[in-house]
Design a protein around this nucleic acid. Structure first.
Lengths: 217, 217
DNA sequence: CGGTCCATAGAGCGATCACTACAGGGAGCA
DNA sequence: TGCTCCCTGTAGTGATCGCTCTATGGACCG
């Protein structure tokens, strides 16, 4: 899941855009992300994007094929920004003693960034909730990102539990990964209501749940 | 949280509509619920509603003030339908021995109906995800419904834990209620991707989590 | 039969939608 | 100076949006 070239750059055959060009493209993406967060998928109009970005409609269609591809790139761009600041899930931190401690370290950073720039998560959830006939391009991108995260989390749990007696149940790491993701989804949604909720409480909750789940199983 | 009279019935001063009238109103609500599930809030257009319901636009505006109030009534109607088939949360079932067993009984019925008619949950989640300036009427209705459920769940846990040593921590029942709600949200969302997932697995998961949480705290 | 009210039918309003066409400006190179 | 290419500016397309208007069919009451 890495950033691919835009529609325009694809046609030009180069992955590199000029400074001005890149800046304009990013301004459009940011404006679209904000508006999608406020008005939803269908509520995001090209007119609003041009007003907020300050760029004309022709610039939007210069960089992006149509509205659908614009929003797909918003999801991709936002997810790439998020994943770039994540700690590596490849293996447990060397100093970690318990699974709870290790998980807490990672989740603290993940949720902190989730609270600051969750556009891909917000828009992705919107796209998951709609079951329309012709699915938007952004939906596929979000689902792929989700699968990647689940895979990484599963691997992380797998490595951590290696040598453990419970490792015999081969689907335990995957179940734990799904619990973490589902808990993140549910509490991200709860956060939309109760903005005052402390992210650390959220982390405590998830860690408690996972520790307990490992204990019980 | 009970069904209120519609805009039209309000003006007429009577809560009762004729047979034909009630049937038409319900057809419009059902059509709007389906379309909102497919296309989202802004994607729900009066034109689509008239096509699917078979009733003309004038009938829609006869029963509902505008699009916003129509969708608010969809949320209310769907939630009322759901709550009507729920078991009472007032007190634990007499025969239940453990909190896990009691919770399992209730959650089994709740999730079974969630899988069949979750329109209010789906639309409600959409409304929660959007943080627009002027909030839709349906959002307030959904949040009130949510608070009612949290309250009932909190009371249920409170009664169940009465006399327990842990009852000293007065916010434990509320925390448990929020865990159940967040887990339901998260796994409802996961269900949108993996339609094949067995609801019973879902119940097992939540029960395990709550049992563990009670144990650990 | 005429009067009243409910619900439906359908035309049409101005505004906005996604998107296109095309001209023009500015930086680089000659 | 003139040519080229990238990006911007503006005007406009037909379609559809939410919503209003007026007319009408049918049930009930006299």
């Amino acid at each position: 899941m890495t950033t691919q070239a835009s529609d325009r750059a694809d046609q030009a055959g180069k992955g590199v855009l000029g400074e001005q060009s890149e800046a304009s493209r990013t301004r459009i993406l940011r404006a679209a992300a904000q508006i999608a967060a406020e008005c939803g998928y269908e509520g995001t109009t090209i007119s609003k994007v041009t007003k907020r970005s300050g760029l004309p409609v022709s610039s939007v269609y210069w960089f992006f094929r149509d509205k659908d591809h614009l929003l797909a790139e918003v999801v991709r761009h936002s997810f790439d920004e998020w994943i770039a600041v994540q700690p590596t899930w490849d293996r447990p931190r060397p100093g970690a003693r318990s699974i709870g401690e290790a998980l807490r370290t990672i989740l603290s950073r993940s949720t902190a960034s989730l609270a600051s720039a969750p556009d891909f998560l917000r828009i992705g959830h919107m796209l998951l909730l709609e079951k329309r006939a012709e699915e938007p391009a952004g939906r596929g991108i979000f689902m792929q990102a989700r699968r990647d995260v689940e895979k990484a989390l599963t691997a992380w749990f797998g490595v951590f539990l290696a040598g453990d007696a419970r490792a015999e149940r081969s689907d335990l790491p995957r179940d734990l990964a799904r619990i973490v993701i589902a808990a993140t989804d549910g509490l991200f949604l709860a956060h939309q209501i109760d903005q005052a909720g402390d992210p650390r409480d959220f982390v405590d909750m998830v860690v408690t749940i996972v520790e307990a789940a490992v204990e019980v199983v």
